[in-house]
Write a protein that binds this DNA or RNA. Structure first.
Lengths: 188, 188
DNA sequence: GTCTATAGTCCGATAGAC
DNA sequence: GTCTATCGGACTATAGAC
């Protein structure tokens, strides 16, 4: 198990979620998070750039997975179909993580600074999707539109997936959002 | 004119844009902005909640204008049409402000913290559009979709409007984005 | 691991407009 | 007198520098 348990990152993430949820984001100091994880403030900042980032570690893995999915999608799929298929393939949002995601989402909604950071992560995801669509041969403007519209679908599906009252699977919510979107764009 | 020139806010905004553009956002302190405006740091924070907000004062006026436009749109217009018509009516984005908008946008793109704040303002706009559509009688899910898709159109049109090489009018860019969106959603 | 700059808050004081 | 805008100093925590 080594000198550094090598899960310092995970311990910091767990400690932060507990403290932020328990007493509020602003009422928690980085020093307290580090202490609960058995580390120092200095070590926290070697793992995470700032006080918010500890909640957003999964963003990169999500982005990489979706980019890979779109990249491997059959060329026969239209750009938006490739993006939506990637969302449906997501198992980051499996049932067993739903409670954790809900807790995290309530926390983010309760704090403007955290909300800003989440929007930034989603914007990075949009940019990555735009880029991989272009590499796949989609013309620039269509790639930009498909990425933005795809993100609209993702946001709506994810918002519903983390609602307390909703028990539908993420893939189903993605499909619902897509068909609602088709109706709205058709001018229904 | 009294002791306070009564345009402290405008002076702070102008000073901030100059200093941020000249030497960079992070290399500028709030004290320097205040000094250039003939005020103190303390007064800056009375007008703006933080170091970034001084660049985003126009966000509220934009939001209020668009909400009013959607609110007054004929009931015959479908939700997305009402939103797009509101964008086309925008004269915030007149030709004479284009240089200023471009300077501001280059600044925002160059700094992650400023980018985060801009995304937050756009998210607030999306929420306001969703709400006014609902008040107008659009069912909740369709209102959410129309607001999100509308924001996708707005982002794309605004991005192009602030590109150096682009000289098309904002309303035209909105219409272009909408037709590209229809093509992408139709599966072209 | 220590030191420092600066963002941002809280207390109160003061100067003018009305 | 009230109301509002400005100013001063002390303070904490983030974040970066050395």
């Amino acid at each position: 198990m080594g000198r550094w348990e090598n899960n310092a990152r995970s311990r910091l993430e767990a400690a932060a979620l507990e403290l932020y949820s328990g007493r509020g984001f602003e009422q928690t100091t980085v020093a307290e998070i580090a202490a609960r994880a058995g580390l120092t403030e200095r070590t926290y900042f070697r793992h995470f750039a700032d006080k918010r980032e500890v909640l957003f570690g999964g963003g990169q893995a999500l982005r990489e997975f979706l980019v890979q999915q779109v990249n491997q999608a059959p060329q026969a799929l239209a750009p938006l179909e490739a993006v939506v298929a990637a969302f449906e393939a997501l198992d980051f949002f499996a049932a067993e993580q739903r409670g954790h995601s809900r807790q995290r989402q309530r926390l983010i909604e309760a704090n403007a600074a955290l909300h800003e950071r989440e929007l930034m992560k989603l914007a990075q995801l949009s940019a990555a999707l735009r880029e991989v669509l272009r590499q796949r041969g989609t013309p620039g403007p269509a790639a930009a539109v498909a990425a933005e519209v795809g993100m609209a679908i993702f946001k709506l599906a994810f918002e519903r997936w983390t609602e307390e009252s909703n028990e539908q699977a993420f893939a189903q919510l993605v499909r619902d959002a897509l068909s609602e979107l088709r109706a709205v764009v058709a001018g229904d």
